[in-house]
């Protein structure tokens, strides 16, 4: 007999799990209700006592465990609240630290607060604050800041995190400029607010050469002192993404989705679709856009996108979730839908 199961993959697990669902029989429903009624008819003092006892033992055990952990990690943990598998780095204002992390070299200018971590096979660089340049030769790096999550693959990049503002520059020259621009302004002690003393001109890259037409506007200063949040946010949105492949953009979109930055995720997904509308990646991006629209209850857009995707005849791995999503949208719109996998 040639009966052999297909290869095990997510789709086959989905079908198998859905196949196991059978209706609850009336007898089972009634029997369960009878037991529920009995259970809720009496107040649960014993259960409460058990819970209280469990809580007391739990608290005592947790306190003992915490004491052991604190004692054992005091000598090795660089800063509190850092998981054992992570490395925390804190650099004081004005200080400079070069740190090697695997095959990468981190050039950190204080004040800075960082955490280096291996999470499920990915290397994650958490930057709470600071300015640093990274010479990156190893596996792809996820850079997480208070306002963004970025997947970095380029060999050299610089990042500046200040409050909720993140600025990323990719490439040797752009990274150098970002470091110089910020270190020149950050390293000296704070200047008095009024009136500014005569300061020698800072060491900065040569100014932009004005165009030959002398009537043109004044050249833009390469060291903008008034660094507004919106400007740097806009830069961080665009600079690291330039020249990325659709696959890298999709990876960034996934990072943005997991970080809850849905607007950024939608922009990146739209770029993936624009780059190659007929690709499988574009179909996956369309499905994600539909999911995002559904999650914010934009049902017409979610429906239009899922319809577009289904009309494009995607491969089965996308078709099935698209059909399910379409069903969920229809149900949310008050329509009936027979799920193609789990049935009516």
């Amino acid at each position: 007999m040639s009966a052999a199961p297909n290869a095990l993959n997510a789709e086959s697990v989905r079908h198998a799990v859905d196949a196991t669902v059978s209706p609850l029989s009336d007898i089972a429903r009634a029997g369960a209700w009878q037991r529920i009624e009995q259970a809720i008819a009496v107040p649960p003092p014993r259960v409460l006592r058990t819970h209280a006892r469990t809580a007391v033992f739990g608290l005592a055990a947790a306190a003992a465990l915490a004491a052991v952990v604190v004692i054992s990690l005091r000598a090795t943990t660089p800063s509190p609240g850092v998981p054992a598998h992570a490395t925390a780095l804190a650099v004081d204002a004005g200080a400079h630290l070069t740190h090697r992390w695997d095959s990468d070299l981190l050039d950190i200018h204080g004040p800075a607060d960082l955490r280096l971590e291996h999470l499920l096979g990915a290397r994650v660089l958490h930057v709470s604050a600071g300015t640093l340049r990274v010479h990156h030769t190893g596996t792809p790096l996820v850079v997480s800041t208070p306002s963004s999550t970025t997947w970095v693959t380029g060999p050299v990049f610089a990042i500046r995190v200040h409050g909720q503002t993140t600025e990323i520059a990719s490439g040797e020259q752009a990274a150098k400029e970002l470091i110089e621009r910020n270190i020149v302004t950050l390293a000296p002690p704070p200047l008095p607010v009024t009136p500014p003393p005569v300061i020698p001109p800072p060491v900065i890259p040569p100014p932009v050469i004005p165009p030959p037409d002398s009537s043109s506007p004044a050249p833009r200063s390469p060291t903008p002192e008034t660094d507004t949040d919106t400007d740097t946010e806009a830069e961080s949105e665009t600079v690291p993404d330039s020249g990325l492949s659709p696959a890298a953009r999709y990876a960034l979109a996934e990072s943005a989705m997991s970080a809850g930055a849905t607007a950024r995720a939608e922009a990146l997904l739209a770029e993936v679709i624009t780059a190659d509308p007929d690709s499988r990646l574009a179909a996956a991006a369309t499905l994600d856009l539909a999911r995002l629209a559904f999650s914010r209850n934009d049902l017409p857009r979610a429906r239009r996108l899922s319809d577009e995707l289904l009309a494009s005849n995607p491969d089965p791995n996308l078709r099935a979730p698209a059909q399910r999503l379409r069903c969920r949208i229809q149900r949310a719109q008050g329509e009936r839908c027979v799920d193609p996998v789990s049935g009516p």
């Binding site: 007999m1 040639s2 009966a3 199961p5 095990l8 198998a16």
Partner: peptide, 22 residues
């Protein structure tokens, strides 16, 4: 879980797939 209306061969495959997934 196998579809009783399906031919025997197919039912065996269905069961095998479900057992494998579980």
């Amino acid at each position: 879980v196998a579809d009783l209306a399906a031919p025997a061969d197919q039912r065996l495959v269905q069961r095998a797939e479900v057992e494998q997934a579980l």
